[in-house]
Design a protein around this nucleic acid. Structure first.
Length: 433
RNA sequence: UCCUCGGUAGCUCAAUUGGCAGAGCGCUCGGCUGUUAACCGAACGGUUGGAGGUUCGAGUCCUCCCCGGGGAGCCA
């Protein structure tokens, strides 16, 4: 008999065979002369079974094991409906790789969010965290395949920048050889330049906002998937965005069905939510809709959390709010030719209260527009000269958007807080671990 | 920055009107041949976030500070 080393997710394919697994002891239950070891390896959890009369010495050793002991086990895979995963390993032997020097801090019962975040480096081994992080991987991969399949070129924006994208948002400052530099808050301006070189571009990268936000939807360091397209108008921009969102959800549903089941996500609802097209609602109509449903809001106001929640619930799927007021938005967006008080921009609001998934717009493409809009925002053109060059040399209509990856993952997973959707969340008051 | 709730055993939480500091889980020990957050029994475990104050007496009341959760604003 040949003995193979495999991963736990492949164990159901090896029923009847003798295999080796390398992992960690997730939990242990014993009942006198029979012992159950729950073994995890990152791909899943499987139960190992051992009875005392069969192997007294091995049984005694197993009985002494503590949680998160790393071990290599050998056994025979068999189906058993009493096992949590439907199959289990009849243990033949095991080797301890490392024995923990203290009890593992994370119980499988209950902890406060603060305690869990303090122990994020250990918490991430347990329960829902493994499936969430595997879904995160699937989301990143789906974004990359979508853009690849649609002819986009993967590129990068710098993290260290000398220019602010949004005049208003707070920036993290770093010392750059005696000069102030900032951690990038968006790759957009750089992607506009790159799109003029390569046509259609995207990147997935970290961005930084020094906002003192304290909500379930905000991190100070988060990942955005940003795209920028030359020769693309507002309408085409929205069309691509909805296709991307639906593509990601469908890919994850297909690839990570087991993980979604572990998270008890209502997958049917999720799939229904991404049936195309997503509704397009004019900003003015959205304001009216909110007013008619008892919300205190007027034209020119930005949406607050309750408004976003209402809109998501009302439509039951992601909804574009388009033609937003100029006053709400940054200098680089193109004015609506039909109404200069509006810009050709849209926010994509997620269902189920997950907030804004995407912000996008057609960009102002003439030098005159940009100059006057910089002036209106009280921004000096000087640091933007390189950006203004894009309108001096073969400027074209172009559009782009940024997708908040963590919010996307939170929505797909159905988890309430985005701190669980990234391995190590950076928040106000949290820089460790 | 603002609003709000909280800080008691390693963890999650109790503690009546201001009157002896408690439980469950975990760890340790004992029992149990199908456990599913196993179960049963025992033992271990405390500077009640910090400083000051009121009082015969403070986990409990007062003042200030520190830390955390939730929310708002801002944004993705």
């Amino acid at each position: 008999m040949t003995m193979r080393t495999i991963t736990i997710d492949k164990a159901p394919l090896s029923v009847g065979e003798e295999i080796t697994l390398r992992g960690w002891l997730y939990s242990k239950r014993s009942s006198g002369k029979i012992i159950f070891l729950q073994l995890r390896d990152g791909t899943g959890v499987i139960q190992g079974v051992l009875t005392e009369p069969d192997a007294p010495k091995l049984f005694a050793a197993a009985d002494r094991l503590t949680r998160e002991t790393s071990l290599i086990v050998t056994g025979t895979v068999r189906e058993d409906r009493r096992a949590p995963s439907g199959c289990e390993l009849q243990l033949i032997d095991f080797t301890v790789v490392h024995e923990p020097t203290a009890p593992f801090p994370i119980d499988l019962t209950e902890h406060t969010p603060g305690f869990l975040m303090d122990h994020r480096h250990l918490w991430m081994r347990t329960g829902r965290q493994v499936p969430i992080l595997r879904i995160r991987d699937a989301v990143f991969r789906a974004v990359r395949s979508f853009f690849y399949e649609h002819g986009f070129v993967a590129t990068e924006a710098p993290i260290l920048t000398g220019t602010s994208v949004e005049g208003t948002t707070t920036l993290f400052t770093v010392d750059y050889f005696g000069e102030d530099a900032y951690l990038g808050q968006s790759g957009q301006l750089y992607l506009e330049a790159t799109a003029m070189a390569l046509g259609k571009v995207y990147w997935i990268g970290p961005v930084f906002r020094a906002e003192k936000s304290k909500t379930r939807k905000h991190l100070t360091e988060f990942w955005m998937a940003e795209a920028e397209m030359a020769y693309c108008d507002h309408t085409e921009n929205l069309h691509l965005q909805e296709k991307l969102v639906a593509y990601i959800v469908e890919a994850v549903v297909q690839e990570r069905r087991e993980e979604l089941a572990l998270l008890k996500r209502d997958v049917d609802r999720l799939v229904e939510e991404v049936s195309l097209p997503f509704p397009r609602v004019d900003y003015a109509a959205a304001i009216e809709l909110l007013q008619n449903n008892g919300h205190e809001i007027s034209f020119g106001d930005d949406f607050g959390a309750p408004h976003e929640a209402f809109l998501g619930d009302h439509f039951g799927k992601p909804v574009f709010i388009e033609r937003l007021p100029t006053s709400m938005k940054p200098f680089y967006m193109k004015r609506d030719p039909a109404d200069p008080a509006r810009v050709l921009a849209a926010d994509l609001i997620a269902p189920e209260g997950y907030g804004e998934l995407i912000g996008g717009s057609q960009r102002a493409d003439s030098l005159e527009e940009l100059h006057s809009q910089l002036a209106e925002n009280h921004l000096s053109p000087e640091p933007y000269e390189w950006y203004l060059d894009l309108r001096r040399y073969g400027s074209v209509p172009h559009s782009g958007f940024g997708l908040g990856v963590a919010r996307m993952i939170a929505w797909i997973c159905g988890v309430p807080h985005i701190r669980e959707t990234i391995p190590f969340a950076r928040q106000i008051n949290r820089l460790y671990p």
